[in-house]
């Protein structure tokens, strides 16, 4: 069974491996040291650690799209904003 139809590139493969590692890491963290009950953040949302990861990822997707539509590729700047966004979400939301 050949996998050529999936059209892998090293760039996208790296992306998915990183994503899988983040998910596994978060799972391990939660398993070893449970994050406990949800807390109420500045948006009035009750979030657990996993919810914050989801908000980070979804937000990052939109940050990247926004960067591409207003500034254009390469989207390295978006990466910086995403990192700031992640820190913000994990601390405050």
């Amino acid at each position: 069974m050949s996998l050529s139809w999936m059209a892998w590139t090293w760039q996208t493969a790296t992306f998915f491996i990183l994503l899988a590692m983040v998910l596994a890491g978060m799972g391990l963290w939660e398993w070893k040291r449970p994050g406990g009950n949800p807390r109420r953040g500045i948006f009035g949302l009750d979030t657990t650690r996993g919810d914050r990861l989801f908000i980070t990822l979804l937000g990052s997707g939109f940050i990247a799209l926004g960067w591409l539509s207003f500034i254009g590729s390469p989207p390295y700047g978006a990466l910086v904003i995403c990192a700031l966004w992640a820190i913000f979400v994990f601390r405050r939301v």
Partner: peptide
């Protein structure tokens, strides 16, 4: 269980 709510979503 670990990740139940996220799995559901």
């Amino acid at each position: 269980f670990l990740g139940d709510k996220h799995l559901f979503f």
